[in-house]
Simulated assay, not measured.
Amino acid sequence: MPADIASLEELREYVHQTLCEKNDFEVGAFEITERYLVRKGAPCGIYFCLHGPRSVKLTAIWETDRNTILFYGSTGERVYKTELKQAPALAKAA
């Protein structure tokens, strides 16, 4: 069932919570960073990276074209996928 996410803030919270829950991390205990992905000068998604213990990095990518979030484990394998009902508005990348 597609996730109902209406804003970028809800998207950030969902990604952070999902990365933590799927890897048995305490939500809020580790820093998460993000970077806008740009294609031909226009934003096309967001790359999220959760910086866990012992240099573990867990990532997720929100693709605006397919309106999906792809979650990746610490070794780079895709471990989970979420479809969104509708895409939150993506502001122009600075």
Rank of each mutant, 00 (worst) to 15 (best):
Q17Y: 08
S74R: 05
E21F: 10
I69T: 10
A29D: 14
A42S: 13
V79N: 02
V56S: 12
L37T: 10
E77C: 00
G45A: 06
W62G: 09
H51N: 06
F48R: 08
E63K: 14
C49F: 10
T82N: 10
P53R: 04
A91Y: 11
Q86R: 08
C44W: 12
A60E: 03
L58A: 02
L19M: 08
A89F: 09
A91T: 09
K22T: 00
L84H: 01
L37R: 14
L19F: 11
G76C: 15
Y72T: 03
I46P: 02
N67Y: 04
A6L: 11
A94C: 14
G41N: 12
L19G: 00
V56A: 03
A93I: 10
Y36D: 08
E83C: 08
Q17P: 01
A94N: 09
F25Y: 15
E26C: 13
C20M: 08
L11H: 07
P53K: 00
H16R: 02
V38F: 14
A60V: 00
E9K: 11
C20N: 11
P2E: 01
Y36R: 06
V79C: 12
G76M: 06
V38N: 09
G28D: 10
L8R: 15
W62K: 11
K92H: 02
D4R: 06
C20Y: 03
E77R: 06
W62P: 12
F30Y: 15
A93V: 07
F30P: 00
Q86D: 09
V38Q: 12
P88N: 02
T18D: 14
E77Q: 12
E9A: 07
A42R: 15
E21N: 13
G52Y: 01
T75C: 02
C49G: 11
R78W: 04
Y47G: 07
K81W: 10
P2R: 09
K22N: 01
A3E: 15
K92S: 08
D65E: 04
G45K: 03
L8F: 13
K85F: 08
K92P: 12
V79W: 00
A93G: 05
Q86Y: 02
F30W: 14
R35T: 11
R78K: 10
R66A: 12
E10D: 05
G45T: 05
T68K: 03
R54M: 01
P43C: 13
R35W: 01
